[in-house]
Computed example of a mutant assay.
Amino acid sequence: MAVTLSEAAARHITKFLAKRGKGIGIRLGVKTTGCSGMAYKLEYADEAEAEDMVFESQGLKVIVDPKSLPYIEGTELDFAREGLNEGFKFNNPNVKNECGCGESFNI
């Protein structure tokens, strides 16, 4: 199962990488934190490490470290604007519960 990008997320990432002037895609992972146990971490990537899983989606690379993959396998990263707010949304089929503020989750 892959980790994918929606068209909106790909447009946003492509625009930011162009403004930044470098990068091959994004690095997506999880860290232990928050009231539900895990939180997503997302950063722009300039290169992939040998042990990383690299997925191609919408013409961009989505890089995931092997420890994070079981928690986010099958996830689609989306980008949404809701009123004055905008940001990435994680459509993760593995999530069982999320905290009330939406910052963390558990599997």
Rank of each mutant, 00 (worst) to 15 (best):
M1A: 13
R11T: 05
I13P: 00
T14G: 03
K15L: 04
K19Q: 12
G21K: 05
G25W: 00
G25K: 00
R27Q: 15
R27K: 14
G29Y: 03
G29C: 07
V30N: 10
G34K: 02
G34P: 07
C35T: 14
C35K: 15
S36K: 12
Y40R: 04
E43G: 13
A45F: 03
A45Q: 01
D46K: 12
E49Y: 11
A50G: 11
E51Y: 10
D52C: 07
D52L: 02
D52Y: 06
M53V: 13
M53N: 13
V54L: 11
V54S: 10
S57R: 06
Q58K: 15
G59A: 09
I63G: 03
I63L: 08
D65R: 07
D65V: 02
S68G: 12
I72F: 03
T75D: 10
T75M: 08
L77T: 01
L77M: 05
L77I: 02
F79M: 07
R81V: 15
E82S: 14
E82C: 12
E82Q: 14
G83M: 13
G83C: 11
N85Y: 04
G87Y: 04
K89V: 12
K89Q: 09
N92A: 08
N97Y: 09
C99D: 11
F105L: 10
I107P: 13
I107Y: 15
